[in-house]
Write a protein that binds this DNA or RNA. Structure first.
Length: 239
DNA sequence: GCGACAG
DNA sequence: ATCTTGTCGC
């Protein structure tokens, strides 16, 4: 069965919003797979001067978090940044990098929200549905909702609530840092996503899949060749 | 009308 | 996101 029917990305903000409302009921909530061996992370970087967008997708082996594959895309910016419509700006380049993957991940982590979105269909949900892969949104700032403050101790978390609905979690990935905001993308749920995000966190606030993608995309933007496919394992490359 | 507002 | 040095705090 092919649930991921594609739509045009060449739309107006009004049409983009309508697409989100329509596709939002494609999102499925369920626990993450019991056996996860590959995790992917994606990130995008911009060059306002040259009007270029750069995307990088990394695939890490889990739970080791060693790099397995890395793919990229560089194209022209086609959509403005509008809060709530991030997928229409970052989706295309991430999709193009994703399509080059030889190793299909079991779970995909995105830099942005999933259900913690005004129409419950943020970037993580959008791409999760299009790729038809379990996905999780891990954002660094809130878009919608509020949460009760908590002690900044690793592992602590607090519900992100909007309109009486729990749309995600504020999660402490490390001690004494700001929390990251975790929400369901597609085929995932809050309890298993919370544990998984913590399991993907190494030495920094941002979990490794998206952190590695962030490092890669910045290297890409400054001219580096980052595509890579490791048959066996490999540690990092930058740092 | 006013403020908020993923990256 | 991006432009950017030093600096306060653990």
């Amino acid at each position: 069965m092919r649930p991921a029917r594609f739509h045009s990305w060449n739309v107006t903000p009004q049409e983009a919003s309508a697409i989100q409302s329509t596709l939002s009921d494609k999102v499925e909530t369920c626990p993450l797979p019991g056996k996860i061996q590959l995790v992917a992370g994606a990130d995008v970087s911009f060059d306002t001067g040259s009007n270029m967008v750069y995307a990088a997708v990394t695939v890490l082996r889990f739970p080791e978090l060693t790099l397995v594959e890395r793919r990229s895309a560089a194209e022209t910016i086609t959509f403005p940044y509008i809060p709530g419509l991030l997928a229409f700006r970052e989706g295309p380049p991430i999709l193009h990098a994703f399509q080059q993957l030889h190793n299909i991940p079991d779970v995909f982590m995105f830099d942005g929200h999933g259900l913690a979105h005004p129409r419950r269909f943020g970037l993580a949900s959008h791409l999760g549905v299009l790729f038809d892969l379990p996905s999780i949104g891990v954002a660094k700032r809130v878009l919608v909702g509020s949460f009760d403050q908590m002690k900044k101790e690793q592992g602590n978390y607090s519900s992100l609530i909007e309109k009486g609905e729990e749309v995600g979690l504020a999660l402490q990935t490390k001690d004494n840092v700001n929390p990251v905001y975790v929400s369901i993308g597609h085929k995932s749920d809050l309890p298993t996503s919370r544990e998984f995000v913590l399991a993907c966190t190494a030495q920094y606030r941002v979990p490794e899949p998206t952190r590695q993608a962030h490092l890669a995309v910045n290297a890409l933007r400054t001219g580096a060749e980052i595509d890579l496919d490791v048959g066996g394992d490999q540690t990092t490359l930058f740092e």
